[in-house]
Design a protein around this nucleic acid. Sequence first.
DNA 1: GCCAACGTTGGC
DNA 2: GCCAACGTTGGC
Length: 152
Amino acid sequence: MPNYWLMKSEPDAFSIDDLKEKRQSPWDGVRNYQARNLMKTMEEGDLVFFYHSSCSPAGIVGTAKVCKKAYADYTSWDKNSAYFDSKSTPENPRWFMVDIEFIEKWSEILTLAELKNMPELENMLLTKKGSRLSVMPVTKSEWKFITLILKK
DNA sequence: GCCAACGTTGGC
DNA sequence: GCCAACGTTGGC
């Protein structure tokens, strides 16, 4: 049984269209311990809502799946990377990433405002005030509810 | 661009 | 280990 997740990306940096074109991509640049720890628990085949953040409107734009389990984020010791962290080395990596694979881009964005208006999702982490995690777990019932909306 | 909410850092 | 100061996220 897969687990379910939501991962945020700023579309200017990496969008669902970028993933669609590449088919697969490392999810690099996560520099938050909680998000990192969650990624370390991901398994191949886990399903992911792809979320566009810091844009208008923000919301879920499609789905992807985890195609490679967590491994060291090599951008963390690349001095030319925006994600460089002097405390991370190949011998002792501080940051990790998974690879994800494109599944589907929805015909319409499911906006954060819409999600917040659904009583069924009032307990979803994403819709909670002050929720800033860029990688978060989604429950099976939340996943089913959201994917069912799209089929209507 | 503002700012609330949260995370991280570092002095003590 | 506390907590003030600072930095970041991300919606609006």
